[in-house]
Nucleic acid binder design. Structure first.
Lengths: 155, 155
DNA sequence: TCAAGTCACTACGATGATCGTAGTGATCAT
DNA sequence: ATGATCACTACGATCATCGTAGTGACTTGA
């Protein structure tokens, strides 16, 4: 990302300068979909990011106002990363990427019925994603996950 | 993008492997918003991509089924790049990126009223973008641009 | 209390990607 | 024929990422 910043006022370019590298959105995805919040949790993901790159990404996402760092009050070794409101605003982008990929990847791991549910109730699902993540939950993992909420509604 | 492909079936990861580098979506943006279709037009953009990188991106986007190359029938030096249907499917992602950036970039070049118009009529505007680009137009440039269509409606 | 484990993160050499500039050959306009 | 224009390629320098191996602060369990 050597591209001189400030050379373009195009909003697509602005976004790509903030999170358009191959790793940033995967970190955001880990928070939103899987409820990950710490360095080692990000490090253990399926895509095997290296620690120095992860460290750099966490710094740049924090600088961009997308993530917020906070020390864990009980275990002082731990640092917790949470999405800011600005970071939560990336959810619609991820949802669209997931929808595109589910449509074009023959080996996608995205369940077809979940993708259909999100596509047909997009504004509500996006809002539900954001509210759930805002209070510490995630889309797929945990008792208060969006998945659990939807299953409770459907039961 | 050294990340071993096939290591993850996550749809966000799939999308990022296809167009998640810092340049691919800018090429797609040039087609959709500005009606660019040739190597030198892409090269002349505000963000100053280098020719070798552009060449590599055009190859990978073509391999990914997002762009289609065709020789110009009248000028045989020319090669034209167009979006495939799969490439047109990236429009909602770009629209969301533009909306996020317009909301968070104090120096954004995106007109506020245009962003508002798109936000409030998203499905229709996305469909209009796609139809216009499909028949060779673009969002902002040309007689048949989406901008011109909207202005004609409002007149 | 003390050793062992875990935490976030840094160091570092090797590899790969991107940068900017300068071409190249094919084709077109005059 | 000449010069301009087309889509690229070549290439050395610089930058980013990769993978592995640590580091110091802190916590845990005996």
């Amino acid at each position: 990302m050597k591209r001189a910043s400030g050379k373009s006022t195009c909003p697509v370019n602005f976004g790509l300068e903030a999170f358009g590298d191959p790793w940033s959105l995967l970190v955001v995805r880990d928070v939103v979909y899987f409820g990950k919040h710490t360095f080692n949790e990000f490090l253990a993901g399926d895509e095997a990011i290296s620690p120095s790159v992860l460290s750099a990404r966490l710094d740049s996402l924090t600088d961009a106002g997308i993530l917020r760092r906070s020390p864990d009050p009980v275990d002082r070794r731990r640092v917790r990363y949470d999405l800011t409101e600005r970071g939560l605003g990336l959810i619609p982008i991820m949802v669209e990427i997931a929808e595109w990929s589910a449509a074009h990847d023959p080996d996608t791991g995205a369940p077809a019925d979940w993708i259909a549910l999100v596509r047909e109730n997009k504004p509500e699902m996006v809002r539900r994603y954001a509210e759930t993540v805002r209070r510490g939950g995630s889309v797929f993992v945990g008792d208060d996950s969006v998945l659990a909420q939807v299953q409770a509604l459907g039961a």
